[in-house]
Simulated assay, not measured.
Amino acid sequence: MKDEPSLKEIGERLERLDAPIRMWREARDRAFAAAFGPKQGKLSNLMARLPQAANAAAALGLGPRDEAFAAFDEICDLYARSDPARCAIIRGVVHEHEARGLLEDYIGYASRILKQGGRPEWLERGIAAASIDDQRRDYRDWLMALGDLYLSARAARLDPTPVLKRMAERSNPERHAASPTPTREALAKFEDSAHFMTSILPQLR
């Protein structure tokens, strides 16, 4: 059985990814800006240039994403086995590093694996990643990613409810400026949320 990674090892692993992720992201930003051109003009013209700019950024590939995702596999597994106090430390370690910006992509990755018939552990990993992310970037994107994961789980005949409740207990109980609701509450009450009622529930009928 593989030894459980220590918090120090997690931090060191993420630190090694800081520079590669930063360089990759900056290169993508430059490619996008160069392809998009001047930001002045009619909104319709600006919107028309978005696909070309997005393709230019995507042409740079996935960069160190796979390495970051491999790290998240271990981190999320550890998170799911940890008590709330240790989970708070894990969140703190992750948010010190550039990989934090890939957590939302990782939730989508877990969702796609579930949709393709992946093992149930991917549901737990995805919700653990949502808990670690803590709605720090955009809570609306966070809700959408969580909703997609929920739908993928249901399509795979898995019940997300117990996992949502379990991960809620490990989540941040405090609200911060980027989110209207603490992540602990957002996960625990996800199935009662307005987003769930309007965007998720209709797809389950």
Rank of each mutant, 00 (worst) to 15 (best):
A57W: 05
A19T: 15
R25Q: 12
G63T: 13
S44A: 08
F72Y: 15
G101Y: 01
A188H: 05
W142I: 15
N55D: 14
A59M: 01
I107K: 04
N55Y: 07
C76E: 13
R166C: 13
A48V: 14
E191P: 11
A35C: 03
A168L: 13
R119W: 02
S82Y: 09
R137E: 15
R119M: 00
P5F: 05
L7K: 06
P64D: 00
S152F: 02
A57L: 05
S193G: 05
A59P: 00
D66C: 00
R81C: 06
A48S: 14
A99S: 09
A156P: 11
T161L: 15
I10L: 06
G117R: 02
R25S: 10
R154V: 03
G126N: 07
D29F: 09
M197C: 06
Q40F: 03
R137L: 10
I200T: 07
Q52F: 13
E169M: 09
R170I: 04
R125E: 07
T161F: 12
G41Y: 09
Q40P: 00
A59F: 02
L164W: 11
S44N: 04
Y109D: 15
G118D: 08
R137P: 00
G117D: 03
G147W: 10
N45W: 14
E74N: 11
R137Q: 13
L158N: 03
A31M: 07
I89R: 08
L114D: 04
A48P: 06
A128K: 10
S171K: 09
E169Y: 10
L102H: 08
R140L: 12
D134N: 14
W24Q: 09
P120I: 03
E4S: 01
A194E: 14
P5H: 11
Q116I: 07
L151G: 07
S171L: 11
A88Q: 05
S111M: 12
W122Q: 05
A168R: 10
H176L: 04
W24T: 10
K2I: 00
A19V: 12
Y150S: 04
F32R: 11
E191T: 09
I21G: 05
G41N: 06
T198Q: 08
E191R: 09
R136I: 13
G118A: 06
A19Y: 10
D133R: 07
L62M: 05
G92P: 02
R28W: 08
E169R: 13
R13T: 10
L149C: 09
A33I: 12
R86G: 12
L149A: 01
D159N: 12
P51N: 08
R140D: 13
W142G: 15
C87D: 00
Y139Q: 03
A33L: 06
H176C: 05
A128V: 03
D141R: 15
S44W: 02
R22A: 14
R16H: 11
L14M: 13
A53Y: 08
L46E: 10
P180V: 15
Y150A: 06
P160W: 01
L102W: 13
F69C: 07
R170G: 06
D192F: 01
C76P: 04
Q40N: 00
S152T: 08
W24F: 05
P38Q: 12
L201C: 04
A80C: 00
G117L: 05
Y109I: 15
E169T: 02
A53P: 00
A35M: 08
